[in-house]
Design a protein around this nucleic acid. Structure first.
Lengths: 149, 149
DNA sequence: AAAAATAGTTAAACTATTTAACTATTCATG
DNA sequence: CATGAATAGTTAAATAGTTTAACTATTTTT
């Protein structure tokens, strides 16, 4: 029954979401908030990026990004560099200290996820992640659809 | 390869989490924040509950719950009732207005989740939800383990 | 050259959170 | 049964993250 699946999905996604957040927070301790870690991760993987890009990816207003980046530049984790060709643009990159802190945190998250994933049989977790990826795609389209209306 | 699965899991769970949060926020509009909706949901399903219980379920300090409940009692959505047998305890229940607002919100979330779930074949989504539920269990044990250390 | 668009910041107001100190009540035990 | 410990909840101060609206500076369009 579809109604039952919907209810189970709502319950369980909320629970997993909360628990995961809380476990990540526990791993990060006082070094970084979860949001700060996600942002460091994004900048690290991208090499460098702009506030506008972060605001789109994280689906918040640009001023929210400014605030987060301010806190991390104050701590010497992120650097701002003005684009000399288009002086409106500011590139964000990790400082050495930022890279170091990110990697230290990322290792912990990696171990956490490993300890969880290895409690499943490989075919089950692979199937799960495959569907999860499809779900991300569906949610992305849903978002565009909402905005298009 | 397990390393690859871990990386895919970290990326995708973050993405889905963000998108889902943002879609729910869009559905709730200015009526409720996501956290407020989750708390109304919990109290509604439980019938009534205490701050301590909410703090445990949501894994935050009790003072965070006090703050959220204050905002919602101010808006007439939640009522506090002192237990006459144990006067330390305060029971939280939804007011009529709270029930009404919750149900209105819940309908929207339900439709949202339905529109997402129905884009999958039934066996796939059922398998997904089953694994998701196991995952919730694993995360729960992980949490206890962390605290036990 | 003037108007429109873009990138980013600032300021004010708000929600959510933590920590530490506190009140009020109940439990435990010596 | 009195006192000290535990429990339930609140308060206050500090911090993180968010939105909205107004702003600066720059580039693009027309």
């Amino acid at each position: 029954m579809i109604q039952e699946l919907i209810d189970r999905y709502i319950s369980i996604s909320f629970q997993v979401h909360k628990k995961a957040e809380s476990l990540i927070k526990y791993q990060l301790g006082n070094d970084l908030t979860n949001d700060q870690h996600y942002i460091l991760r994004y900048i690290h993987l991208a090499g460098s990026c702009t506030s506008t890009e972060l605001a789109e990816v994280f689906e918040v207003n640009k001023s929210a990004i400014t605030a987060i980046i301010n806190r991390m530049t104050d701590r010497g984790l992120i650097e701002r560099t003005r684009d000399e060709n288009d002086r409106r643009v500011v590139y964000l990159t990790l400082t050495e200290q930022g890279i170091e802190l990110y990697q230290k945190a990322q290792e912990k998250i990696h171990l956490l996820v490993e300890s969880i994933i290895t409690q499943f049989e490989e075919p089950e977790i692979t199937a799960f992640i495959n569907t999860y990826e499809k779900l991300a795609e569906v949610l992305n389209n849903k978002k565009k659809e909402e905005l298009g209306e």
